[in-house]
Structures are given as C-alpha cells and as structure tokens.
C-alpha cells in the first residue's frame, strides 16, 4: 500500500533517520476550496529585527530572534518569536500579517473566518454524533434493564413454584447421613 503509487516517486530518504510512515498524499476532501492567500507587497512592509533590544553584540548572548513587521498603509504591527530561527519567524510574521489584513478586508469571507466556520461546523456535527450515540446507548441500556427486571420476575415466579413442588418431597437418604 505504502510502497505503491506515489510513494515510488518520493526521493530516497535516509532510512536510518526517518521512521516509516504512512504518508497521506491525497488532497484533503474539503467541500469548497479556500480563497487564495493574500499576497502582501514587500515594499509596503517595514521589517525590524532588534527593535528596542538595547545593547548587545558580543557582550550579551541573546536567544530571542523576534521579528517585527509593520504594514505601513494600515499601521498594523505583528511580532513573531515562535522559533529560534529568524528566517522562520519572518515567514510566520508575514503569514500572521496576511491573515490579519484579510480578516480586516474581507470579514466573513476571509480564509481564517472560513476555516473557523468549517471547524465549528465539524465540532457541532461531532457533538451531535456523540449525543446521538450516547442516546442510543442509553436507550439500549434501558431496554436491557427492563428485560432483566422481567427476567428476574419470571425467575422469581419459577423458583416459588419449584419450592412449592419440592417442599413435599423427602430428602434422599444418603444426604441425610452426612
């Protein structure tokens, strides 16, 4: 399964480093495609790496590599310090800014809003499913319980009849000896 199809075309990888994994190569089956990501013109960005970080250089050994981005037309400022790598943080900051701008421009139609809507819909349907499942289980339990009660009653009746029948019969002889 894994070694057929697309997996054949994957570049050879260091097997000693990566565990074998089932790779999902098919597209997620989302009903509607999301609107394209917003492209920000680099010229409208003010990027700052060490804003207000004070003296440094060899004297101080810092671990933060925050990136601050300012979108000059709107004045939106985002800051990213998620990773230790500045180039990664730069990507995150741009992504963050694009999301914020889109939300501002398009409101409900923005990627983040649509994603959130899909997520909440999924969650709602999941909880609905959960409720349905437990309702069914509860009902089953109820019927089982009733059946048990009925069975108990019948058994009770049966034993009383049996007791009535056996009370007149004398015990076997050998059992009396021991």
């Amino acid at each position: 399964m894994f070694r057929s199809g697309l997996a054949k075309n994957l570049p050879s990888r260091p097997l000693n480093l990566l565990p074998l994994r089932h790779l999902h190569v098919s597209k997620a089956s989302s009903a509607k495609a999301l609107p394209p990501r917003l492209k920000i013109d680099e010229a409208s960005l003010e990027e700052n790496f060490l804003k207000g970080s004070g003296p440094g250089g060899q004297k101080i050994n810092k671990t933060s590599s925050a990136v601050q981005l300012k979108h000059s037309p709107t004045g939106i400022v985002v800051k990213s310090q998620a990773t230790r790598s500045r180039s990664q943080n730069r990507k995150y900051a741009r992504q963050l800014l694009a999301e914020k701008l889109e939300e501002m421009e398009m409101g409900d139609q923005s990627r983040t809003a649509i994603k959130a809507a899909i997520k909440s819909k999924k969650k709602a349907s999941a909880s609905k499913k959960k409720r349905r499942k437990y309702r069914a289980l509860e009902a089953e339990k109820e019927t089982n319980k009733q059946a048990e009660v009925e069975l108990d009653e019948k058994l009770d009746q049966a034993t009383t009849i049996r007791e009535e029948n056996t009370s007149n019969v004398p015990l076997p002889r050998d059992s009396r000896d021991h």
Binding site: L50, G56, G57, N61, T63, S65, T83, R84, S87
Partner: peptide, 30 residues
C-alpha cells in the same frame, strides 16, 4: 547558554553548530 545546550544556533538560513570554547553567533551579526 541555551545554544551550547541545544548544540546549535540558526543564523540566516543556516544552522550553525555551537560548542563550548567557540563564540555563539549573535543576532546583531546576523
């Protein structure tokens, strides 16, 4: 320093190895 514990420091697009006895690359330099 965290870089000595983790063994490296990102610098530009590269991952620079760090060991005791050798100066850790600084963000200002980057």
């Amino acid at each position: 320093p965290l870089q000595y514990i983790l063994g490296s420091q990102p610098f530009g697009d590269l991952e620079i190895l760090c060991r005791k006895g050798i100066l850790i690359p600084r963000p200002e330099t980057e």
